[in-house]
Amino acid sequence: MKRDPGLYSFDLYRDRPKITWPNGAQIALWVAPNIEFYELHPPANPQRRPWPRPLPDIVPYAHRDYGNRAGLWRMMQAMDDCGMRGSISLSVALCDHHPEIIEACRQRDWEFFSHGIYNTRYCYGMSEAQERAIIEDSIETVERAAGARIAGWLAPALTHTERTMDLIAEYGVRYTCDLFQDDQPQPVRVKSGRLISMPYSLEINDVICYNSYGQTPRQYGDLIRRQFDRLHAEGAESGTVMCIPLHPFLVGQPHRIEAFHRALEYCCTRSGVWKATAVEICDHYLEHHYDDAVARAGGSA
């Protein structure tokens, strides 16, 4: 095991080369709905139990199913209303289970990136061949169902191996949402290809805010505004990225959607905001800022 993941260089958030976004925007805003499928009877990973109770553990299973049946549509309406496209963290097996959802997202020109096959299949303990298999499965499944190649990765249930970043980069994935060390993109050190860390967030992720921090819907709306205000202000110096990661089974509940809708509207109606998808931010950064960042880090990410 390593003491340091060795994936990026240390770079204090001060006096960095200026990041610029299209049209002089200060902040690149993206929304990441996690559209997931959780299995009722997943095989047990040696390092993590999928459900707390003996199988079938129907309450948490059904809670997540709520997102696909009911919550997703409400979340989509709020995003449509704000002119905000989604960059979907997708359990790719959902292409097979619920193609209607994929179609609704395609109609909106939303982006798909991989969040593994199912969110009940963890990577801990996978061999290299197995990890390659889920990457190849992800690429092929999304290409078949959505007609586009995935550019990004968020490991299923945030489960990783030491080789995850090298492997996804080798397959041409350009950004990872798995690293939380910064509010700006940064090159990731990989054996081949070009990979960047895309600011995602656990801190304003609805699943953390609601299930771990126990916030109320209005507190959640307020913190989205505060996160935005600060990053928007700092972005006057050098462009920042704000991601709002969502789970339709949480944010799409009737008692929560309105608070989110108002907060998103707040963010989307300010000036200097680039309402983007993750791949748009990624490709802009790769084209304009990646090489400078590598040079600043001494020639390697």
Partner: peptide, 30 residues
């Protein structure tokens, strides 16, 4: 982890249209 996870971990017997059980049909509320 050279041997990796048991083979069943990369098999998906219920990966197909609808739910992964037979208790109810997949259906979108709206």
């Amino acid at each position: 982890d050279e041997g990796g996870l048991p083979e069943e971990f990369l098999r998906y017997p219920r990966r197909g249209y609808g739910m992964d059980h037979d208790w109810y049909e997949w259906s979108m509320l709206h």
